[in-house]
Amino acid sequence: MVELESAQLNVIFHALGDVTRRGMLSELSGGEKTVGQLAEPFDMSLAAASKHIKVLEKAGLIRREVRWRTRVCHLNPGPLASAHAWLREYERFWTGRLDALEQLLREEDAHNPASREGDDP
């Protein structure tokens, strides 16, 4: 199960590793868009946009449907939750480290009265 999750996270982070794809996801957070609408802000061809969209689809971050001759894309936020959960572990790590640093600095200030605000050196 862990290997499957790891493989899926690799695909998600690969998709998120490109500024154009992150921009496309941002555009989709406002609602569905056609492939042409997704390509427009990036001044790219439909073929280039389609390649980015395929990477996002492979990661499960978007889904595409065909309406007549138009392809419409929708955001699928579920996989972002997996990535966020993974990142949250590192948030806890850094929060703990910063809390320890803050405590150390407070202790240092308590033992060194000259470093207190308003005191003359």
Results as ranks from 00 to 15, higher is better:
Ala39Leu: 03
Asp43Cys: 08
Leu98Gln: 03
Pro41Gln: 09
Leu9Ala: 06
Met24Ser: 08
Trp68Thr: 13
Ser50Glu: 13
Leu38Glu: 12
His52Gly: 08
Glu57Lys: 07
Gly17Met: 04
Pro77Ile: 12
Arg22Thr: 15
Arg116Asn: 05
Ser29Lys: 01
Ala83Tyr: 03
Lys58Ser: 01
His84Leu: 12
Glu40Ala: 13
Ser6Lys: 13
Arg22Trp: 02
Ala59Cys: 07
Glu32Gln: 07
Ser45Asp: 06
Lys51Ser: 06
Ile62Asn: 02
Leu61Lys: 01
Lys54Glu: 15
Trp94Glu: 02
Glu117Gln: 10
His52Ala: 10
Ser6Thr: 14
Ser50Asn: 08
Leu28Phe: 00
Asp119Asn: 12
Ala114Glu: 10
Leu98Asn: 04
Glu107Asn: 15
Ala85Leu: 12
Gly60Glu: 06
Val2Ala: 12
Pro113Leu: 07
Glu65Arg: 14
Val11Ala: 05
Ala83His: 10
Arg88Phe: 15
Ala100Val: 04
Gly31His: 09
Glu5Ile: 02
Leu80Lys: 01
Leu104Ala: 12
Trp86Ile: 01
Ser115Met: 10
Leu105Phe: 10
Met1Tyr: 14
Glu107Ser: 15
Asn112Cys: 06
Glu40His: 13
Trp94Met: 00
Pro79Leu: 06
Phe93Ile: 02
Glu108Met: 13
Arg63Cys: 00
His84Asp: 08
Arg97Cys: 07
Glu40Ser: 11
Leu87Ser: 10
Glu65Cys: 07
Leu98Tyr: 00
Glu91Gln: 09
Gln8Leu: 11
Arg71Cys: 06
Arg92Met: 01
Ser50Lys: 01
Gly78Leu: 09
Leu9Gln: 05
Ser115Ile: 13
Arg88Ser: 14
Lys51Arg: 14
His84Phe: 14
Ser115Ala: 12
Gln37Phe: 00
Gly118Ile: 03
Pro77Gly: 09
Leu105His: 07
Lys33Leu: 10
Ser50Tyr: 03
Glu117Gly: 09
Thr95His: 14
Glu5Phe: 01
Glu107Leu: 14
Ala15Val: 05
Ile62Gly: 04
Leu4Asn: 04
Glu117Asn: 11
Ala15Lys: 01
Leu25Gln: 05
Glu3Ala: 04
Arg92Ser: 00
Arg63Glu: 10
Trp68Phe: 08
Gly30Leu: 04
Val66Trp: 00
Glu32Met: 10
His52Asn: 12
Leu38Val: 09
Trp94Leu: 02
Leu9Tyr: 00
Ala100Trp: 11
Leu16Asn: 05
Arg67Ile: 00
Asp120Gln: 03
Glu107Asp: 13
Ala47His: 13
Pro113Phe: 00
Trp94His: 06
Val55Arg: 01
Arg106Met: 06
Asp99Pro: 03
Val66Asp: 00
Glu108Lys: 15
Gly23Trp: 09
His52Val: 12
Gly96Cys: 02
Glu32Tyr: 11
Ala7Glu: 10
Phe93Leu: 10
Glu27Cys: 07
Leu87Ala: 13
Asp18Pro: 02
Ser26Ile: 03
Glu108Thr: 15
Val11Glu: 13
